[in-house]
Design a protein around this nucleic acid. Structure first.
Lengths: 144, 144
DNA sequence: CGAGAAGGTTCGTGGTACAAACTAATTAGT
DNA sequence: ACTAATTAGTTTGTACCACGAACCTTCTCG
């Protein structure tokens, strides 16, 4: 296997990005999952179960996660009109503001990381990352 | 800011890689931090505090982490001969085996993710990732 | 209508992270 | 040399996070 270097680089890179995300969250007392939660809720109003699939978590984990976020006024639960078993989760004004701010800080942080790359290199990196990602979703769909 | 796409791609990519890592760990009942712990210990025999710096964790967190890993026979503590306050952490035979196996599975997984890329693209991705990484370590060193 | 399936919650267990208080060992200051 | 301040690690208390199992309610299907 000649790709050890690439494997290593991707691993390190992933930690770099995740640490940035965790750090930014921490500045507002948010854990990584809570950051992800708000991130998802920015453009969706999913049911608990959809949320679970999205985040790869058990439904019981979602219950607790939403509980805590709700206690802090970041999200709300709303009953579905069509099926009284399901509850939708939506982001509040406060949560929205936090998410937007955080996203901006994150974007800035990442931008500083790739600041040393030429515009062409950045485009290339974007393209390659997308390729890997689409490859990844294909792979994970095989396990349904 | 024209780099939203790149920011997004890197974020998604990082989750892809971390999920792979977490999944592989989970198959041996290892959390992500424990995977990282074994990863570090593969080629170092650090003190508790060095470990903490390496993983970005508080020393009390390290105590617990090493406690649990030690309870499972993955690592051992050894007293330093030169300074009786410090304890070094080293990986056991069992831990070593686990780490090596896991690393192989991980490499395989990542390789499958980048399988769609040409050899030239893989080389380019490696180069760009390294550039971002070195940029990232530089940035984080500014906060010492 | 009754049996079973599906969406969520609750509970119990254990890992994770931090801060604060504490012990033991080393280093500095005088 | 002897005390004072530092440093390495541990312990304790609190909160979060994740899971599985048991449970309740609400559909759905036969």
């Amino acid at each position: 296997m000649t790709d050890t270097d690439l494997v290593d680089a991707l691993a390190q890179l992933s930690f770099l990005v995740q640490n940035a995300l965790a750090e930014i969250g921490a500045q507002h007392d948010l854990s990584l999952v809570q950051v992800r939660l708000l991130g998802v809720l920015r453009d969706h109003e999913p049911t608990m179960q959809e949320l679970g699939r999205h985040l790869g978590l058990d439904k019981s984990s979602i219950s607790g996660l939403v509980d805590r976020a709700q206690r802090r006024g970041l999200v709300t639960r709303t009953a579905s009109p069509v099926d009284r078993r399901v509850t939708h989760v939506s982001i509040t004004e406060t949560g929205q503001r936090l998410a937007t701010e955080g996203a901006a800080v994150f974007a800035e942080h990442i931008s500083s990381l790739v600041a040393g790359l030429s515009a062409a290199d950045r485009r290339t990196l974007t393209r390659l990352a997308h390729q890997v990602i689409s490859n990844g979703s294909r792979v994970s769909e095989e396990h349904d």
